[in-house]
Design a binder for these strands. Structure first.
Length: 594
RNA sequence: GGCCCCGUAGUUCAAUGGAUAGAAUAGAAGUUUCCUAAACUUUAGAUGCAGGUUCGAUUCCUGCCGGGGCUACCA
């Protein structure tokens, strides 16, 4: 890699000139800003103590050394503490040749490490919504990026399929429903069950209002409304394995799973393993015992078990109720251990919203106290909420954006745009439908992934279906356009093999593009380390943008010189490969034509 | 109250402590004999406030002001 080579050379210069040993990884190199001449910039400010001279002097000494001792630095200039290096045209051409023939833009070699990524985690009482989409796309993209950086990845989904909220929809279905199936109702199973969850809440609210009117304290009313008491009763029956209750639970959950499967298929997402909370909610009590034995936990008079985390700036936290039943934390401790038993990972990523930051901080801290070696590899990929222009999404107030509806809207819009542009005249139905899905899904995924995960973001429906500017379809379009050029080149019998020495001088656009191509690995590494697909998204967008500028200014087929044509085809080819690879790692498909 | 996250052009987003804070969109002005105009080119516009750390701060630290979250023997 060119960048590494330059760093190595700078390290050599520091050693030879100032007898300073610098690790190659510690040397930071950045792209030169457009206003200055050069390709790479080395900042000398941090090294002034070593060079024992002023910034200009230091830059000049290192620049001179590099010019004399390397064959790729053709020129340099120094502005204050910035040493701007210009790489020779021959070297850029050689770099492109390496890229176009080499294995770049593929996955990195396996590193022998395992990582588990848990995401999606839906509740089986309502359909998926916009917030789940951000979660799913983040989890899926992160898994792909980790895979590409060498990990063996296990994608898992822990479904929240039990609890009081599930009983609420079960109860409403029993009380207010006519026993209809999704087929009879003509809607997906998850939507049918979700409908009854809403119904429950309406009735429950009505009951509370009535109680309050009759003079009951509001807080008390919430706890004593008949509906909620019935739901609690039902949960109890479920826990006792009451046959009728379990049968109803299985029937409704079965419908929900069918609905989810359909949505996941539409999103292009699948899991390697599914966990159900109904199977895991009793886990963790043995870890509580272990913690007590090791004096990590302590028991209060009432028998409840706690962990004291005040030395780490947190509170005391309950890990087992006084009556010996589990709480959320108990369950998560047990599940964590179970996951590691199933798949002995070095890292385990939880893709969960940032409202649970504290919970995971506590969980990880407990696992560490319990002496689990893998605890350092536990990571909470915490993401912010998705807001709507109208404000926060609230399922009870009906201000949620349903995932199925949104996906369909994206497909419809893609179809409308494509037809308006007259792009599909020579496509058959199957091909054009596949294209609409690719575009609609690409637009949505890119829109949600381009933002730094940890930040709260605004989802504007109008903007998300925009196909211009910083969007997925813009990148997809660029790939399709390059594919057309490469096809054309084939018919003209122009190959992508060229002799770097014969290419001659390059223009700025060409150099910019090759530079961009050399930084792919960097973007991939950063994305994997930070668990942030937005970094890769930015890389892919910049590449597409650079290519479009290049395409506009540099005629690809209007040149007699065969070598130059071959060089440009190689550049187009490499760019297309990088675009496709980058997009695929984000979970977005790119079309050959559109 | 305590703890955590976020405040950047009109708007939506960028910026390992680096040079004159980048894009996109909306606004203004242009570019089709030519490989796909879902494109390209020009132009105008921003770091909440006050300190501190240093060669240099959007970034790190402190305080304040705004927005959000967590603070259940719920999950």
């Amino acid at each position: 890699m060119l960048e590494t080579e330059i760093k190595r050379a700078i390290s050599g210069a520091l050693k030879s000139l100032f007898d300073h040993s610098a690790q190659v990884d510690d040397i930071s190199l950045q792209p030169t800003r457009k206003e200055f001449e050069g390709n790479y910039t080395f900042v000398t400010f941090p090294y002034l103590k070593i060079t024992k001279s002023n910034p200009e002097q230091s830059g000049k000494m290192i620049g001179d050394w590099l010019s004399e001792n390397t064959d790729f630095v053709s020129r340099y200039n120094v502005v204050k503490g910035f040493l701007n290096l210009t790489i020779s045209h021959l070297r850029w051409a050689m770099t492109l040749q390496e890229i176009s023939e080499g294995k770049n833009f593929g996955a990195m070699p396996a590193n022998g490490k395992k990582v588990m990524v848990e995401f999606s985690s839906p509740n089986t009482n309502k359909p998926l919504h916009l917030g789940h989409l951000r979660n799913n796309f983040l989890g899926d993209a992160t898994s792909r990026i980790l895979w590409a950086s060498g990990y063996e990845v296990m994608k898992v989904n822990l479904v929240n399929d039990r609890g009081i909220h599930i009983c609420k929809s079960m109860l409403a279905y029993q009380k207010y429903g006519s026993g209809e199936t999704p087929e009879q109702a003509g809607i997906k199973g998850d939507h049918l069950v979700g409908k009854y969850y809403v119904k429950f809440d309406q009735e429950y609210k009505r009951e509370i209002e009535e109680l309050v009117k009759s003079g009951v304290d509001p807080e008390k009313a919430k706890k004593e409304a008949p509906s909620i008491l019935e739901a609690q009763e039902m949960l109890k029956k479920w826990e006792e394995q009451d046959q009728g209750t379990v049968a109803l639970w299985e029937k409704l959950n079965g419908w929900v799973y069918e609905g989810f499967d359909q949505t996941y298929a539409t999103m292009g997402i699948h899991f390697d393993n599914m966990y159900q909370e109904s199977q895991t909610y009793l886990l963790g009590k043995d870890l509580v015992d272990e913690g007590l034995k090791k004096n990590i936990f302590f028991k209060k008079e009432d028998g409840s078990v706690w962990v004291d985390l005040t030395d780490e700036g947190m509170d005391e936290k309950l890990v087992l109720r006084g009556d010996g039943t589990a709480v959320y934390m108990t369950q998560d401790m047990g599940t964590c251990e179970m996951k590691h038993d199933d798949f002995p990972f070095e890292k385990s990523v939880y893709v969960v919203g940032n409202e649970q930051d504290y919970h995971f901080k506590v969980l990880f801290s407990i696992m560490k106290k319990l002496g689990r070696e893998y605890s350092d590899g536990l990571y909470h990929l915490s993401y912010g909420m998705v807001d709507l222009p109208s404000g926060k999404m609230k399922s009870r107030e009906g201000t949620v954006v349903d995932a199925d509806d949104l996906l369909q809207e994206m497909f419809d819009t893609a179809e409308k745009h494509t037809i308006e542009l007259g792009k599909i005249e020579d496509m058959d139905n199957e091909e054009s439908n596949a294209l609409y899905k690719m575009l609609g899904l690409g637009a949505l995924k890119y829109f949600l992934l381009k933002v730094d995960p940890k930040k709260r973001m605004l989802f504007n429906p109008q903007e998300s279906i925009e196909f211009q500017g910083h969007t997925g379809p813009f990148i997809q379009y660029t790939h399709a356009r390059i594919s057309a050029i490469v096809r054309r080149a084939k018919t003209l019998e122009i190959t992508s093999s060229f002799d770097p020495a014969k290419v001659g001088s390059l223009n700025q656009r060409e150099i910019d593009l090759i530079y961009r191509l050399t930084t792919y690995e960097h973007a991939l590494n950063e994305s994997a380390e930070d668990y942030s697909p937005s970094i890769l998204a930015q890389y892919v967008y910049d590449l597409a943008k650079d290519y479009n500028g290049f395409y506009q200014e540099v005629p690809i087929f209007k040149e007699d010189n065969k070598h130059i044509l071959s060089f440009r085809i190689a550049l187009s080819n490499s760019t297309a490969r990088a675009l496709k690879m980058g997009m695929n790692l984000l979970g977005i498909d790119v079309p050959e034509r559109m």
